[in-house]
């Protein structure tokens, strides 16, 4: 474990807590893409298949359980919870996310670290996570103004993988046989997708103005 990865995990956790706070405090999920949340639940479920087979550390196991439970809770909330469900922008959240699932799975079958069930699903989860934010960014552009908590949620979500990039650079230089190029390349794509959001988020922070993405 290194400071970059720990900071990355904490930033990821903060993003989830901010989203839970938004949904709980405002009893609304307006501006949040259910499709992105479903993709994230799938990412965690397929990435942590080794939850019961490979014990890395208490921290690792606890965080995996937290990520799986919170992502499922958010999807459940947005689908089942009467009050929250009504605020869901159903007509705006129309990204065909099953295409992302199909594409990432096809890529995972072709490009993986080892042609085993677990490794194919691990690679699938890595590719899917890179593009999972797309429905959310599309929804953001369509819904125009963004409430603060949603903006912060997306900011922390993007920042966590940027910290992981630093973690991989650090591990590359400090560990003899470290090569996670699938996660690294995918992480660069993932962070790149946030580039324009980060730009407008920075502008809104600098000008102390509301976060506006150009339609």
């Amino acid at each position: 474990m290194n400071i970059f990865r720990f900071a990355g995990d904490m930033t990821h956790l903060i993003s989830i807590l901010v989203l839970l706070l938004k949904i709980y405090a405002t009893k609304s999920c307006s501006g949040i893409s259910l499709k992105t949340q479903e993709l994230y639940a799938l990412v965690f479920l397929t990435r942590y298949l080794d939850l019961f087979t490979d014990f890395i550390s208490v921290y690792n196991t606890v965080m995996k359980l937290v990520f799986i439970a919170s992502s499922l809770a958010i999807v459940w909330c947005m689908r089942m919870h009467g009050l929250v469900k009504r605020s869901y922008d159903k007509e705006l959240d129309t990204f065909r996310h099953y295409l992302l699932v199909a594409g990432c799975f096809a890529l995972a079958v072709l490009v993986n670290e080892k042609f085993t069930f677990q490794e194919i699903f691990w690679a699938f989860s890595i590719y899917l996570e890179a593009v999972a934010i797309l429905p959310q960014l599309v929804l953001l552009q369509r819904s125009g103004n963004v409430d603060n908590l949603t903006g912060q949620y997306i900011f922390f979500l993007g920042a966590y993988r940027a910290l992981y990039l630093l973690n991989w650079i650090y591990r590359y230089f400090t560990e003899v046989r470290f090569s996670r190029w699938i996660a690294c390349v995918s992480g660069i794509v993932q962070t790149g997708l946030y580039a324009d959001f980060f730009y407008y988020y920075f502008l809104s922070w600098k000008n102390n103005a509301k976060l506006q993405l150009p339609a």
């Binding site: 490979d54 690792n60 670290e113």
Partner: peptide
């Protein structure tokens, strides 16, 4: 052969 060690990252 190239043994894939367990993924230690989240």
């Amino acid at each position: 052969s190239h043994v894939v060690e367990a993924h230690d990252e989240l």
